[in-house]
């Protein structure tokens, strides 16, 4: 028995926790929250670019997951299921947010509203390069925010979170081809923004 439990994969561990949660074990659900919060935090934060919004969305995501965990039949992994809840809720939130911004008083153009929070650059070796790198990253953040919500979601999952096309397709209920074409389009858009920086 103990040898069996030692060999369980993360997916199997999730399955066990899900089964326990379905039987009303709240501690098991807490373990799922603790396990998936950091991963989902990165995903939602890259899409919203705001820590408070990320926090609120994540609370809603887990509340929804808790309410419907009994309906989860294991057709996909818990990871895919919780990711799709998070992505869909974030996309809905972003839609609402952009609608509110459009109707806000004293609105100025497309950019207005919340300011993108700078993301700390990952360690660099050269100090001269560091300045231009930081600038480039800032530019990249701005460019990312200019993408549509759907394109930003795909870029976040593929390029930043390193998820495979098939997984993204499952989460967004799209074909792999659509995911690839969205990625290609998004990369082109980002490239165009950064080209301006190069000139």
């Amino acid at each position: 028995m103990s040898a069996c439990s030692e060999q369980t994969s993360p997916a199997q561990e999730d399955q066990i926790l899900v089964a326990r949660s379905q039987n009303g074990d709240t501690a098991a659900f807490d373990s799922l929250v603790v396990k998936f919060t950091p991963k989902l935090y990165g995903l939602v934060y890259h899409m919203t670019d705001n820590h408070e919004d990320t926090h609120d969305i994540l609370q809603e995501v887990f509340a929804k997951a808790y309410r419907s965990v009994r309906r989860f039949r294991g057709g996909s992994s818990f990871y895919t299921w919780i990711y799709s809840i998070a992505v869909n809720m974030t996309l809905n939130f972003l839609k609402k947010r952009s609608r509110n911004r459009r109707f806000a008083l004293g609105e100025e153009g497309t950019g207005g509203g919340q300011k993108a929070e700078p993301i700390e650059p990952v360690a660099t070796d050269d100090t001269v390069r560091e300045v231009s790198n930081r600038e480039l990253k800032e530019r990249l953040n701005v460019a990312l925010q200019k993408l549509s919500n759907e394109h930003r979601a795909v870029v976040t999952m593929f390029d930043i979170q390193g998820m495979p096309h098939a997984e993204i397709a499952k989460i967004l209920s799209l074909s792999e081809g659509t995911v690839r074409s969205r990625l290609h389009y998004a990369h082109q858009q980002l490239q165009n923004h950064l080209e301006d920086f190069r000139k």
């Binding site: 935090y41 934060y45 390029d159």
Partner: peptide, 18 residues
Amino acid sequence: PGSENEVQKLLRMKGLVP
């Protein structure tokens, strides 16, 4: 920095935000 590879590299450098 404008090439697609570079864009992807930069995006990866953004990394997961813990």
